[in-house]
Amino acid sequence: MTLPLPEVVSGRFVQGMDEEEYHAHPALSQTGMKALLRSPRYFRAQRSMNKAKAEFDVGHAAHALVLGVGAPIVEIPDRLLSGEYRSIQSAAAKQFKADAEAEGQTVLKPLVYAEVRRMADAVLMNAKARRLLELPGFTECSLFADDPVTGVHLRGRLDRLAWDDELGWLPLDAKTTTDVQRRKLTTSIVDFGYDIQFVVYDMLLRLIFGVEPQPMHFIFVEKAFPHEVRVVRMGDPAWRAGGEEKMRAALDLFAWCTERGEWPGDDEDGGDVQDLEAPGWYRAQTNLGEVFS
């Protein structure tokens, strides 16, 4: 079945764009926005660095197995690994890794490969996740459009854009995490800026297709055994309001820095040294909680 896309109103919708080509594109992404909100200096430094980090291999590999796309995964033979921790130290192991990566493959040690397979299986065995992933749609879609307020060129890359006959267009994203308890996920959403990701992708879909998509659906899977899975929807209006506020702050800051050619750090105002206030939860753990309540 070929699922027709709605007509493109503005911007671009690209299927099958190479991942390196996408990440090399100069448009501002939701990841860039999160870096900007830390500081413009940090954002500029991140843009100049090679983003290919080994710690991301597990997440990329899990995506490849769950979504059926992305860099092929290859397991390095255990006989090439060295020592108790099975390190890639020998000349043969280093050559195997270099050759595989030159062919665009993700290289994993046997134990990591087995863990990634278990993670992917856990997602595909979860009824809610499987139901969403089996909907017709498009995988790894690259989105490009201009913010109508600031004119900043934006980009986003959806894991999957699914279609439900009753709900309409439904954006999906798979995430690895350490704990899928609901209270832990709310912290992860704030700490990793998934609320910003939600509203950026939502805006891109509205700009490109002129449609009103469903709130973002996240499929979270734990990295450690037993790899529990939780599927959540960003349907609470507070997520949208908070995400939009952060997105707008990042867009305004990007436009300001671009216009002036200045990318300051987080504490460069030259003023007085400020006290660092203890958070409420810290006070609550001590007798100070009673003193200052």
Rank of each mutant, 00 (worst) to 15 (best):
K53G: 06
K53P: 07
K53I: 13
A54M: 08
E55H: 08
E55Q: 05
F56Q: 06
D57E: 11
D57W: 15
V58D: 03
V58C: 02
G59M: 03
A61P: 06
H63Y: 02
A64I: 10
A64M: 05
L65P: 13
L65E: 06
L65D: 07
L65R: 09
V66Q: 02
V66C: 02
V66D: 01
L67P: 00
L67N: 01
L67D: 00
G68D: 01
G68A: 04
P72E: 03
I73C: 01
I73A: 01
V74C: 07
P77K: 07
P77L: 07
D78T: 06
R79D: 14
L80Y: 03
L81G: 12
S82R: 09
S82P: 04
S82Y: 13
E84D: 10
Y85N: 12
R86T: 08
S87M: 11
I88G: 08
Q89P: 01
S90W: 09
S90P: 13
S90T: 15
A92R: 12
A92V: 07
A92H: 10
A93V: 03
K94C: 05
K94N: 06
Q95E: 04
Q95I: 01
F96K: 02
K97N: 07
D99S: 11
D99K: 14
E101A: 09
E101Q: 15
E101R: 14
E101L: 12
A102Q: 05
Q105M: 08
Q105S: 04
Q105C: 09
Q105G: 02
T106K: 06
V107F: 15
V107P: 15
V107K: 14
